[in-house]
């Protein structure tokens, strides 16, 4: 049962992605053509609210469900890693029109071909794991 709450969180996430059409290839295409505010609105509004939430958690030393202080670790400092890795991700994002979350949502909604997409994404991660020491970070 300790996993059950995460399934509920995932269901909420899946419904949100689907009903807001963030799962749609066409919405991503539209976003990269700057032809609608929709996707930007989703990202901006969640980030603005998220900033408020994170600030509140840090300011009030808000405790987690286990009674521990919530610590949000800083990301590693680097430019090439984020710029190169981010660009490679962006190429895939625009081409496939889905990022990792929507991929699972679409798989569940009946587009079983996304199993192949998931296998390719796992293979990409695996290749990164093999090459990691040779790549600039």
């Amino acid at each position: 049962m300790r996993y059950f709450k995460y399934i509920i969180v995932g269901v909420l996430f899946g419904i949100t992605m689907f009903k807001s059409e963030a799962v749609s290839w066409f919405r991503i295409y539209e976003m990269f053509h700057f032809q609608s505010f929709h996707m930007y609105g989703i990202i901006f509004s969640s980030v603005v609210l998220g900033m408020g939430i994170v600030t509140f958690i840090k300011w009030r030393h808000f405790k987690s469900i286990k009674g521990e202080e919530i610590i949000i670790p800083d990301k590693q400092k680097s430019i090439p890693r984020y710029l190169i890795g981010g660009t490679i991700f962006g190429l895939g994002w625009a081409m496939a029109g889905v990022c990792p979350g929507p991929m699972f949502v679409l798989m569940g909604s009946g587009y079983t071909v996304f199993v192949v997409f998931l296998a390719s994404a796992m293979f990409g991660t695996f290749v990164y794991g093999l090459l990691r020491d040779k790549l600039p970070h």
Binding site: G86, I88, F117
Partner: peptide, 13 residues
């Protein structure tokens, strides 16, 4: 697309 996303996401963390 899957490969680029899997590789890029992990590279970018």
């Amino acid at each position: 697309g899957g490969f680029l996303i899997g590789f890029g996401a992990r590279y970018a963390g």
